[in-house]
């Protein structure tokens, strides 16, 4: 059964989006991305290292022609910084689909929603397709959708924390009220967290550290691939009703 994942009118096979940070080297990054089956990878925009001309480039390991680059604004704490970063990203190769992330607190990396909303408005006007990292606040996510975000990406818990989805109710409510894709971004620590996100009905999961900081990143990448598929299928299948007491699985009649 086909189950296409559509963001901003573009179709993708995998509902897993992976980050490309924190890996030992680009070879490991490329191997993990391949094992994850992701069609979209997030990338950061930074100064070129002028002194080391032989430094390898991410693009030499992950071909932007065969995988969708999703430029992010990680490390930006103001709308101004975020806009500058994404405009540069667009110039690099015409990327219009971007991930906006405006942080508000260095310790928790919690998003600054006021700056995030301001930035989304400007980016949408400039023709960007904006996937927005945000708090799991359904008033904020509604606002983001109203002003043109193409995907809502609430955190499950703080970036890099690996403690999973802390407020399942909010994630469910956000999904219910949204008509654009909802992607849990941040907080996933292991495969079951990704499955939970999908079982809640989310359209996708975005993660980085859970793979990059696993003892075996490539194996964890593969685990995440199946975790997202499992959660999606379980959601579509529709889970059984929960009961308070036992209910035998074998027929009760004709016992010997």
């Amino acid at each position: 059964m086909e189950d296409i994942f559509t963001i901003a009118n573009k179709n993708f096979n995998s509902r897993l989006i992976v980050g490309t940070g924190k890996y030992k080297n680009f070879k490991e990054t490329a191997n993990a991305v391949k094992a994850s089956g992701a069609d979209i990878v997030t990338v950061a925009v930074r100064r070129v290292n002028i002194l080391d001309k032989d430094q390898p480039l991410l693009m030499d390991y992950l071909d932007p022609k065969s995988i969708t680059y999703l430029p992010n604004t990680a490390g930006c704490y103001s709308s101004k910084e975020a806009l500058r970063t994404l405009r540069l990203a667009r110039d690099m190769g015409g990327w219009r689909l971007v991930k906006l992330e405006v942080l508000g607190d260095k310790k928790t990396l919690y998003p600054n929603m006021i700056e995030t909303i301001k930035s989304t408005e400007v980016l949408v006007k400039e023709g960007f397709e904006v996937m927005v990292y945000c708090s799991d606040d359904l008033i904020m996510t509604k606002k983001l959708e109203d002003i043109g975000a193409c995907a809502i990406m609430p955190l499950g818990s703080p970036i890099g924390s690996g403690i999973g989805i802390q407020n399942k109710t909010n994630i469910t409510l956000i999904k219910e009220q949204s008509s654009v894709p909802v992607i849990v971004d941040a907080g996933v620590g292991t495969a079951s967290d990704a499955t939970i996100a999908m079982e809640l009905g989310c359209d996708g999961v975005l993660l980085n550290t859970a793979i990059a900081e696993a003892n075996n990143p490539v194996l964890m990448a593969e685990a995440m691939k199946y975790a997202v598929i499992a959660g999606r299928k379980a959601f579509k299948a529709g889970r059984m009703k929960k009961r308070k007491y036992g209910s035998a699985s074998s027929p009760q009649g004709n016992l010997i």
Partner: peptide, 10 residues
């Protein structure tokens, strides 16, 4: 002058 490129990021 600022010259930027893409690097790994989450």
């Amino acid at each position: 002058v600022e010259i930027v490129n893409f690097i790994g990021g989450g």
